[in-house]
Design a protein around this nucleic acid. Structure first.
Lengths: 108, 108
DNA sequence: AAATATACCTTGACAGATGAGGTATATCGT
DNA sequence: ACGATATACCTCATCTGTCAAGGTATATTT
């Protein structure tokens, strides 16, 4: 288990949804965007990513469709739904709150 | 599962260790201290608390002993070890880092 | 006598994360 | 021509922290 695995647990869905607010994207690209944004400090494991996609789609927070690539490997694109945006908003607010909670519990 | 359960997952050990830097304490009191500090916003469930104590003691991060109460229910006291202090220091540093990571990934 | 507060504990089940495995196409270096 | 690497998808079994539900015991309050 990596350094930050249990600590970031539970944020995967929020992180994915947030990436999708910049526009539709696909698994591989989302993964790269996360690595790039954190300068390699954090990466979502593939298995984690795809199980999260399944959960999010089952919950109607995202929607998927196959891209029509002329060449190269096929891509499954995801777009965030209206419910997804609301869910994301709530999670972001919750995160702001949790940050202060944990700070209050572990800092001097 | 409560609002913040998966988001706080992984912080339980750090939170407990941090409470113990104020001096030795026992389960019930630690639990109350957490509830009080967060004004009831967050509480560690008993099962979670006691499994965490087992883990922490197995890892030599805390040490336990029975109090000699003249009356009332017996109390098992815990004290943080030197390794526990180092572990806590690292976790606090990691938390500062993770905060910026997640902010960078979910904020606009 | 019953309810509440203090104080401890275990067990089974759940859910998210992940290692390990798989498939397929395109490109780059030798 | 061939192997390595990058792109791009996926599943399954396993691990681990959390927690509901159950238990025990003592002291105080109603």
């Amino acid at each position: 288990m990596s350094l930050t695995s249990d600590i970031i647990r539970g944020h995967t869905e929020t992180i994915i949804l947030s990436q999708l607010t910049d526009g539709d994207s696909y698994g591989y690209q989302i993964n790269k965007a996360i690595k790039d944004k954190t300068e390699g400090d954090y990466e979502v494991k593939e298995a984690t990513l795809y199980t999260a996609f399944r959960r999010l789609e089952s919950a109607d927070l995202i929607h998927s469709y196959w891209g029509d690539e002329a060449s190269g490997a096929r891509r499954r694109y995801y777009s965030i739904t209206e419910e997804g945006r609301e869910f994301l908003e709530n999670n972001i607010k919750e995160w702001q709150h949790v940050k202060t909670l944990i700070d209050c519990l572990i800092s001097k």
